[in-house]
Amino acid sequence: MPYDRLQRRLGESGSPTVTTLPDGSIDHFCTVEDAAGSLETRDAFGREILGDRSSFSFAVETTEPGGQAVNTAKQLHALGGSVTCYGHLDAPVFESLPFDTVSMGDPAIVYVFGFGDRDVMFVETSEVAEWTLAELRRVGDLSEAFGGDAICCSNWGSVGGLESAFHQLSDADAPRAPFVFDPGDIVGHPPEEIGALLDAVTALQETFDVVYSANRGEVRTTAAPLSGPFDGDLARLAAIREETGITAAVMHARDEAAVVTGDERLRVSNYRVERPARHTGGGDRFSGGLGHALACGWEWDVALACGNACAVYYVESGSTGDATDIAAFLEERSPLES
């Protein structure tokens, strides 16, 4: 069982060197109210918007350092990794982060409106959208940023410049290491933009062992321009991997994680969360768990189990679990069949 082996591995994983990049945000977690009090669901909010009301009140409950690169780094650090986050971190809120950071500019401002079924995010436009590889060169050495045991990169959906950076990195002098890439929210992007993304990922594989990691909706969007029809998630992942020649294509979802490599097609069931404390940020913890496992050289089924466990622990508790937390979480749960 991958979760049994994960428990053992968590106590002996060491401290791999991992880089995350390139975004960053100041996340305000909020509640929304009308005259009758808090609106608990998106449906209730939607009905109020479509009704006679034109104004609402909201309260900021907490403000936290965020962004996909930052959240992924939080998980990697919690698991014992030696992490450096290259992001847009020019704000006092990032000074509390317990790992090394290198800032390339101002962060985005995000308002996360929490509802019982799902969060809704509103993002202020920021300079993150103008990011290029030149910004990374301005603040650091590429050999340091890409010279570790793994790289975790994210948020193509919001960060311009990643395609150009991937093409430039195709001939970079860097150790061949796992490059976990989560494109972020790409649902709704037109096929020509997805095609350009896949071309850039193909180029990146020239230098790194690229692992394309996305949720179920994002996997469907990625596979849509490719030859179908597809009979399921594994078929879509296989088409993405075949189109790009990357090392692996991964899907993370509430019920399972899956991967297609050149040799394997695997699914690992996930634990169910009855009462989520957070709806936003679980995918970033999956990236952190997956990146840590790959940096440590773990088998694919254990790597997927690690991503699942980190994501579920965060969604259920609202906090990022360290190796001891995750091991205890697995000990308390009934075994899953995969």
Results as ranks from 00 to 15, higher is better:
residue 159 V to F: 11
residue 159 V to Q: 06
residue 159 V to S: 03
residue 159 V to R: 02
residue 162 L to S: 13
residue 163 E to H: 13
residue 163 E to V: 12
residue 165 A to P: 15
residue 165 A to F: 15
residue 167 H to C: 09
residue 168 Q to D: 13
residue 169 L to F: 15
residue 169 L to H: 11
residue 171 D to R: 01
residue 173 D to P: 01
residue 176 R to C: 04
residue 177 A to S: 10
residue 177 A to Q: 10
residue 178 P to C: 03
residue 180 V to F: 14
residue 180 V to E: 10
residue 181 F to N: 04
residue 183 P to S: 09
residue 184 G to W: 15
residue 187 V to A: 03
residue 188 G to K: 05
residue 188 G to N: 09
residue 188 G to T: 12
residue 191 P to F: 10
residue 191 P to I: 02
residue 192 E to Y: 07
residue 193 E to Y: 14
residue 198 L to K: 08
residue 200 A to D: 15
residue 201 V to G: 00
residue 205 Q to L: 09
residue 205 Q to N: 09
residue 206 E to S: 11
residue 207 T to M: 04
residue 210 V to Q: 07
residue 210 V to A: 05
residue 210 V to H: 12
residue 212 Y to N: 02
residue 212 Y to A: 02
residue 212 Y to G: 03
residue 213 S to N: 10
residue 214 A to T: 14
residue 215 N to L: 08
residue 217 G to W: 08
residue 219 V to W: 03
residue 219 V to D: 00
residue 221 T to M: 02
residue 222 T to Y: 03
residue 225 P to R: 01
residue 226 L to G: 04
residue 230 F to C: 02
residue 232 G to D: 11
residue 232 G to L: 09
residue 234 L to Q: 10
residue 235 A to G: 11
residue 237 L to T: 13
residue 237 L to R: 04
residue 239 A to G: 06
residue 240 I to M: 07
residue 242 E to V: 06
residue 244 T to K: 01
residue 244 T to Q: 03
residue 247 T to V: 05
residue 248 A to E: 12
residue 251 M to G: 12
residue 251 M to Y: 09
residue 253 A to Q: 07
residue 255 D to N: 06
residue 257 A to Y: 14
residue 258 A to Q: 00
residue 259 V to P: 00
residue 261 T to M: 09
